[in-house]
Design a binder for these strands. Sequence first.
DNA 1: TTCATTGCAAATAATTTGCAATCGG
DNA 2: CCGATTGCAAATTATTTGCAATGAA
Lengths: 142, 142
Amino acid sequence: MAEAVTADRAARSLQQLGYRLTPQRIMILEAVLESDDHVTAEELYEQVRVQYPHISFSTVYRTMELLRDSGFVTQTDLGGGRVQYHPVGKATHHHLVCQGCGSVAEVGEEIFTGLQQELRERHNFDATLTHFAIFGRCERCR
Amino acid sequence: MAEAVTADRAARSLQQLGYRLTPQRIMILEAVLESDDHVTAEELYEQVRVQYPHISFSTVYRTMELLRDSGFVTQTDLGGGRVQYHPVGKATHHHLVCQGCGSVAEVGEEIFTGLQQELRERHNFDATLTHFAIFGRCERCR
DNA sequence: TTCATTGCAAATAATTTGCAATCGG
DNA sequence: CCGATTGCAAATTATTTGCAATGAA
């Protein structure tokens, strides 16, 4: 029950960091935290626009930059021209993208535990392996 | 000595695939195969422009698409708004990008062997794990 | 000759930025 | 009140595309 960040808590933190709590920021914050998975700027824009049609893309982008720098979301660019935002503290999973048929399968984060351990032990590197896309060929396409 | 693809061999293969061998394609092909590592469209453009100032960006992009589809290069988008091209058959390595100090360390591909095997055995997925960037924190920044 | 390929210029598409108006603290 | 934040419109940047001219086979 105290695992993931709530919108309230995040909002308070932002305020303590010296940022102003505008309605736009709160709505964007709620939208991104509600998403169990990744969202794009466009999805956030559309979602917030339902309650607040006046919202602008610049505000979405600027707010996500702020949330990223404050550590509430991570930002991933897996190609395809759109950046993905992803709330921290939520269950992580990864994508297996087939370069043959384009299918996308999901796998849990335990896939990386071996790699992570090896990086830590042999390279003294503490890897943040959240939300990756792995390219290759699926069963059918091999 | 028969490990990496040479420009001549690749050119011949392209021809056999039914593509025309234009000087532009040959120059771009040589440029990308000469690079031990990744190159961007811009880098290829600049490099070819030295011998052939008339080259256009469209040709670079279209040629790289062709080389990618023919299997001579892989295309990776690690964010930052520029796609990276990378000749196949060259030694692969990966980057450990520290989110604290921005330092970049290199690690060999053997890092992924465990993961690759697991993906193959448990998920029937044949992963192409070439040229990755891994984010996290380096020794000093932890 | 003939059609694939090129170069140019214009089109896309995501993201960023300048600036005047607005509103949270 | 005052400066941080917003919305708009214009700018930026990488990449793509239409089309007429060109050149490889």
